[in-house]
Structures are given as structure tokens and as C-alpha cells.
């Protein structure tokens, strides 16, 4: 990349202690990724806004209260929050240079993520079987779209993490793979934060309503 080593703003070197920031080529990518995350955050914000506008528009069909399964979404939440924690452990292991630990934590994170996605699919299938399809009402359209967008983000994240894992396995912890691990973890934490909002705005308030 066309970035001369010396002409980087001082921000990069201040955090030079972490491996992922040490190389200015990589730190600019991390910054780019933060910018991307802000666009993704706004995308979710718009979906949340849409959901809030139409969540009472059930058209005589299933209401939030009827379809939300408390144990189901609680376990989903538990899995995803835990996976965010293990993802953080992976980053720590990476910074300490422990390749095996890093890989192990990534695998645990992915497995927890898979568990989350599996449960979500199960939840959706059950809803559809009860006639709660996204064509039934505006509320259900918005519900499936918001939660489904998050779910497909998580699925994508799992695939991405797997690819990153392969690269770590092949190449070890280098400036490049460290940046890749760091970014995929950023993404993962971000999805965790979005889920916290889904959990409260969609599920909890839906059950209470």
C-alpha cells in the first residue's frame, strides 16, 4: 500500500504497544473499519426506528407477547454475550503471542456463535409454523428483518472468523493476521452491542408490553 512508513499521524504510534497497531499500514485499516462500523450502526439504527414505528401494527395477527419465547431468547443472549467475552480473550491471547490459545478462543467463540444462530433459526422456524411469517403484518416484517439482519451479520462473522483462523494457523501471529483478528473481534463485539439493544428494545419490552 502506498503509505510511507514515516508519514503517519502520531495517533498510531501512541498505541504501538498492541501488535495490531504497530504497523501503520494496519492501523489505518483498523481506523477504516471503525468508520465502517459507524455506517453499520446507523443501518441498525434505521431498522430499530422502523421496528419501533410499526411494532404495534399487528393487523390482528400474532403480537410480540404471543411469539416471544422467554427461555429461548435468554439462552441466545447468554450465548452471544459469552462469545463476546471469549472473543476478547482471543485478542488478549494474541497480544501475548499465544497462538494456540488464540486459536482455541476463536474456536470457542465461533461455536458459541453457531449455537446462537442455531437457536435463532429454531425460533424463526417455530414462529413461521405458527403462522407468524414476515408477510403476516408490518410488525412481523420489521421483527424478522431487524433480528434477521443481525443474525445474518453473526453468520457472516462466523465465516469470517473461520477464515481468519485458517490464516492464523498458517501464518502465525503477524502484523497482518493480528490486525485481522482484531478487526473480526471488533465486528463481533459490535454485534454483541446491537444484540443488547435487540434484547431490550424488541424482546424484553415486547414481553412486558
Amino acid at each position: 500500500m502506498a503509505l510511507a512508513e514515516k508519514h503517519v499521524t502520531p495517533g498510531g504510534s501512541a498505541r504501538a504497544s498492541s501488535i495490531e497497531y504497530r504497523d501503520p499500514h494496519q492501523s489505518v485499516r483498523i481506523m477504516g473499519f471503525w468508520l465502517f462500523l459507524s455506517t453499520d450502526m446507523l443501518l441498525f439504527a434505521c431498522l430499530f426506528a422502523t421496528y419501533l414505528v410499526v411494532r404495534t401494527h399487528t393487523d390482528g395477527g400474532p403480537t410480540p407477547h404471543e411469539i416471544f419465547d422467554v427461555p429461548g431468547f435468554t439462552i441466545e443472549t447468554f450465548l452471544l454475550l459469552t462469545s463476546s467475552f471469549t472473543g476478547g480473550l482471543a485478542t488478549l491471547a494474541m497480544r501475548n503471542g499465544h497462538k494456540k490459545q488464540l486459536m482455541a478462543w476463536l474456536i470457542v467463540t465461533m461455536l458459541l456463535g453457531l449455537g446462537f444462530v442455531g437457536l435463532e433459526i429454531q425460533e424463526f422456524v417455530a414462529d413461521v409454523a405458527e403462522g407468524a411469517t414476515m408477510q403476516r403484518s408490518a410488525f412481523l416484517s420489521a421483527f424478522f428483518t431487524l433480528v434477521g439482519t443481525h443474525g445474518s451479520h453473526v453468520s457472516l462473522g462466523i465465516g469470517w472468523m473461520f477464515i481468519t483462523l485458517l490464516q492464523v494457523a498458517r501464518r502465525g501471529i503477524t502484523a497482518v493476521t493480528a490486525r485481522k483478528v482484531f478487526i473480526v473481534n471488533l465486528y463481533w463485539h459490535f454485534l454483541d452491542v446491537v444484540w443488547v439493544f435487540i434484547f431490550t428494545v424488541v424482546y424484553l419490552s415486547g414481553v412486558v408490553m
Binding site: T50, V53, V54, H57, T58, D59, M134, Q135, R136, S137, A138, F139, S141, A142, F144, T145
Partner: peptide, 14 residues
Amino acid sequence: IVGTHFFTMAHGGD
């Protein structure tokens, strides 16, 4: 193309 109801007149779209 999927038949959702975000912006339709029927079924609660807005």
C-alpha cells in the same frame, strides 16, 4: 419481492 408490509397500505404498513 418477498411480500412484507413495511410500506404497504394493508396489513399495518406505513
